[in-house]
Amino acid sequence: MMALLLPALVGGVLTGGVYALVALGLTLIYGVLHIVNFAHGSLLMVAMFGAWLLATRLGLDPLAAVPLMAGAMFAIGWGLYRFVIGPVGRGDDRGVLLATLGVAVVLDNAALIAFTGDSRSIETPYALQMVQAGPLLIPLAKLVAFAGAMLIALLLWAFMALTDTGRAIRAVAREPEGAALVGIRPARIFALAYGIGIACLGAAGCLLLPSFYVSPQVGGMFVLVAFTVVVLGGMGSFPGAVVGALLVGITENLGNLYLGESLGPICVPLLFIAVLLVRPTGLFGAVR
């Protein structure tokens, strides 16, 4: 069994790295705006299709497309919050939840119209390359995605901790009224934070594409995974999102290993339910 366990663990950690990037955006949005962004999975799908288009039409390698897609997704996220989710949701919990659901429905089906329901993937020169690490063979694409995700997570952390904009965002997260008093405009920060959260998805989409399929249904597959990560780590917590992502990645892989491919996927929803019922603050709690 050991021979299978170790690769499953390593595979879980690698997948978890990319989940971390998806979840960081979600936890940032929750931490600052205190909203549950149900459109997160669908926006990831949009990013993956963006990277797919760049790769297939322009021959741009997904890794090289990371800055471009992060920028594009920032613009999409900013505009979406500014012109749709903000005005439609009016800051009320149910309104925002339903607004983000509406956005998800529109995006999923727009993708279905544009790309049909087929699954698509790209071919990269490194898609089949393996890295030998002791007894393990690790797919290069996944290793690169993991490293890229961790690097971007670090950059995001540095941005939040060291720049003025980052500090303003954190001030609004903690005390919107207080921040308004010192001249920060919360409404602007909200759109900005939402944009940054979605920019993470731009990067994540590029990093995922070489080793994952993309289809209009991908959003629905990722949305609960992302929320499980965030809830497990504690809504709003950055380190929580990273640790949670690794745990979810490992859980998923172990589930598939021990329960089989068909029953294995039950692990994520069960984990999600269990965390919310037993320890809704997650492992790290939210530090407001």
């Binding site: 339903l98 659901l101 509406g102 956005v103 429905v105 999923d108 089906n109 279905l112 329901g117 209009p216």
Partner: peptide, 13 residues
């Protein structure tokens, strides 16, 4: 496929 459900989303918003 997808046109009607997309419109539902728009109407919901």
């Amino acid at each position: 496929p997808g046109v009607a459900p997309m419109l539902y989303g728009v109407v919901l918003l």
